[in-house]
Design a protein around this nucleic acid. Sequence first.
DNA 1: CTGGTGACCATTA
DNA 2: TTAATGGCCACCA
Length: 112
Amino acid sequence: MKHRAEKDTYLRIWRTVERIPRGKVASYGTIAMLSGFPRQGRLAGYALHNLPGGTGIPWHRVINAKGKISIPGKRGEEQKRLLREEGIAFTRGIIDMGKCEWRSGTGLRKKK
DNA sequence: CTGGTGACCATTA
DNA sequence: TTAATGGCCACCA
C-alpha cells in the first residue's frame, strides 16, 4: 500500500466525530479544528458526506455553526430525529448551542 | 493545470 | 437584522 494520504484526512475527521459524546453536538468548524484543520469546515462536511455506512460514527451530532442542520433532503430529517432521541432540544429548528455544544475539554472554547 | 462545487465559517457592509 | 465576499481544502470533469 502506498497512496492513502488523502483518505487519512477524512479518517482524522471521522475519528474526531467519533469522540462526540451522546447528547452533545459539534459544528463542522469545531470538528475540523480538533482534527487539526482550523478554518476548514468544508473538509469536515466533505468528509462526512463521503462517510461510508455501517461505521457507527455519530455523523448526526455534527451541525453547522448556526446551530442548524446543514444537510438537505431526507438525511437532514433523519438527523433531527436522531438528535431528539438523544435529548437535543430544537427551538424553531435551532439547537441551543452553549448548552449542547461539545467541548473537548476545559481548554477549548469559542472566543469572540 | 484550470475551473467549478461543496452536509462551512468569519468578517464586512 | 440579512446579504455579500473571501478564505480554505479536497474532489471531479
